[in-house]
């Protein structure tokens, strides 16, 4: 769902307006993963890592960060980090619900699968992607289809799982990306 939506209306970014910040950010993420995976801190391995991370970051920095504006990025990341504990809490509550459904002897009477359609207020691609992934991560609901304009189709396993949509989660995602 992410790649097609991102490709659809990515902002036109000519070569001359490309700033250095996405390149540096990509490089540091890649180099952190390199250090974590290699686990050797002598000169040869670190220099090899720097060279290969530079090449990959130069080739693919516009894949990871598609928008060219970078001024509010740190604030967005901080708000995103604050969103994760709430999401984990929701995931845990909903997991226990699905676990209860699974082991219930009369499960066929309890479940009532249906497809919910609604239109989201969110506009930008990255917030739609985050919202759709959050819905899928919460058990009991799976995002079936998202359009670029924010039309959602969600498969919910029973009535209580589908009722709180879009609701609070949409507002929180919107607050992250300040929409």
């Amino acid at each position: 769902m992410g790649s097609s939506a991102l490709k659809h209306n990515s902002p036109k970014s000519p070569r001359q307006t490309r700033s250095i910040a996405p390149f540096l950010l990509t490089f540091f993420i890649l180099f952190g993963i390199w250090l974590l995976l290699s686990g050797r801190f002598d000169g040869l391995h670190i220099s090899l890592g720097v060279i290969s991370c530079l090449i990959v970051a130069f080739l693919s920095s516009d894949l990871l960060f598609t928008s060219s504006e970078t001024k509010g990025m740190t604030v967005t990341w901080l708000r995103f980090l604050r969103y994760i504990p709430w999401l984990l809490h929701q995931v845990f509550l909903a997991n226990i619900h699905v676990l209860y459904l699974t082991f219930h002897p009369r499960m066929m009477d309890l479940i009532d699968p249906e497809i919910i359609r609604f239109r989201s207020k969110l506009k930008s691609n990255i917030s739609l992607l985050t919202f759709a992934n959050s819905i899928t991560l919460t058990p009991g609901t799976i995002t079936v289809y998202v359009s670029v304009y924010g039309d959602f189709q969600v498969h919910a396993i029973d009535k209580p799982s589908g009722r709180p949509l879009p609701g609070e989660m949409e507002e929180r995602v919107g607050r992250i990306f300040s929409e």
Binding site: V91, V98, P139, I142
Partner: peptide, 21 residues
């Protein structure tokens, strides 16, 4: 859950997420 649920779409609910947790 993968064995008990009635159809393919509802089987994905336990398969995808209970395994992740």
């Amino acid at each position: 859950g993968i064995i008990r649920f009635p159809d393919f779409y509802s089987r994905l609910h336990p398969a995808g997420k209970l395994d992740t947790t």
